Simulated scan of single mutants.
Amino acid sequence: MKNWLRTTLVTLFGFSLLSGLLAGCSRDHHADWSADDVAKVRDRIAGKMDLDAAQTQKLDALIAQLQVLRSDIKGTSNDPRAGFATLITGDTFDRNGAQKLLDEKTSALQQDGPQVITALADFYDSLNPDQQRKLRQKLERHKSWFGH
């Protein structure tokens, strides 16, 4: 196969794969979650793990930190694909725009990440050994991409 043809096919395949991954990962299943929806999920987790009041407070703190992280990473855009779409509107890929988008997301993660880690550690450390085992088993059963 000619070198230019192979390069073109590999580039097209790579672009297709990248755009498919970005489209799949950017689907926002939980975009419209109300406070009631979050409370229902929290109550379901607390019930399945038999959490006491102190553990439920730590779970609430973790959920709050995750919501802050998610909103900061999402930014002001309501369409998660819009940022990527602007990178490919011209004749060439906007490398500077891509780097700026990456820097924004990375900055949000670096800013909020330590608080999420602390909240997660506080929650996990508050669990008794049986609850920790249940959590590990649950994660083991769903170790594929987000349980899908």
Results as ranks from 00 to 15, higher is better:
S107C: 01
V116Y: 03
L59E: 06
R42V: 08
L17W: 09
G90I: 01
S77G: 11
G75M: 04
I45H: 03
V68N: 12
D37E: 09
R136C: 00
K58S: 07
D103T: 09
Q115E: 14
Q137C: 05
R6A: 14
V38F: 00
F146V: 09
K100I: 02
K74G: 10
Q111C: 03
S77V: 02
S77W: 00
A35V: 09
M1L: 13
P129L: 02
A46T: 09
V10A: 15
F146R: 13
N96K: 15
L87W: 02
A35C: 02
Y124I: 10
L87D: 06
Q110L: 14
G14V: 03
T56S: 14
G113K: 05
Q67G: 12
R42C: 02
L59C: 08
Q111D: 12
G24L: 06
D36S: 13
A85D: 15
Q99L: 12
H148G: 13
R6G: 06
I88H: 05
I88Q: 06
Q111M: 08
D94V: 08
Q111K: 15
G20E: 01
H30D: 13
D112H: 12
A82K: 11
M1D: 08
S34M: 01
G47F: 02
L17C: 11
Q137L: 13
A64L: 07
A61Q: 11
G24N: 10
D52V: 07
Q111I: 04
Q110Y: 05
D60K: 10
I45C: 06
D60S: 14
L120H: 02
V10S: 11
Q57N: 14
A85P: 00
S77C: 04
L9R: 01
D94F: 09
G24M: 06
T118M: 07
D72N: 14
R141L: 12
A98H: 03
K134I: 01
G97A: 10
S126F: 01
A85R: 13
R27N: 10
Q132K: 15
S26T: 05
F13T: 13
Q115L: 08
Q99A: 12
K48L: 10
Q110V: 06
K74S: 11
D50G: 10
G147W: 04
Q111H: 14
L12T: 10
I63F: 03
F15M: 15
A39T: 09
S144I: 07
K105Q: 13
W4E: 12
N96A: 14
A39C: 05
K143A: 09
D37F: 00
I117A: 11
L51G: 13
S144N: 13
G147M: 03
K134L: 12
V10D: 06
A121Y: 01
T118H: 04
